[in-house]
Amino acid sequence: MTIAEVDRQIVEATQAGLPLTPAPYAEVAAKLGLKEAEVIDRMTALQARGVIRRIGVAPNHYALGLVANGMTVWDLEDGQARRLGAAVGALDFVSHCYLRPRVLPDWPYNLFAMVHGLDREEVEEKRGEIAKLLGSACRASDILYSTRILKKTGFRLAR
């Protein structure tokens, strides 16, 4: 782990969430025996370094009524995968979009795009839009609907 011990303590103290109280950083500081200003300075630096990607909410798509969640997967020609991946990622109904390695013969797909909708019909319609955008550069595709969240805790530092 390439972060300072104090930073690590801050990560551990906040990874389950920020206190929902008026001065959350002061509360974290008090727990760690630090000054509020030090926690604020260190978290600002961690965000600048990219260790903190963002501070905000993690929506639960199921609870929001978006019960149809499809992981669309595509086998794109390698030479076009980056350009087309960027185009798919820019679609406003795609929440996550990644290029990943194929694992042949079990897994021939290299582009993953998460699509959320109120029902599967809506997700299929969006899948069709992606297929149209990809055209003949796409050799095969599939969609994997999530049926249940088994665990969702985010990153945890283990001691």
Binding site: A16, L18, I55, A58, P59
Partner: peptide, 14 residues
């Protein structure tokens, strides 16, 4: 409706 509110860390950056 939200599973968490707070910082999201990049494990790779650490």
């Amino acid at each position: 409706a939200i599973t968490r509110f707070g910082p999201f860390f990049d494990a790779a950056a650490m």
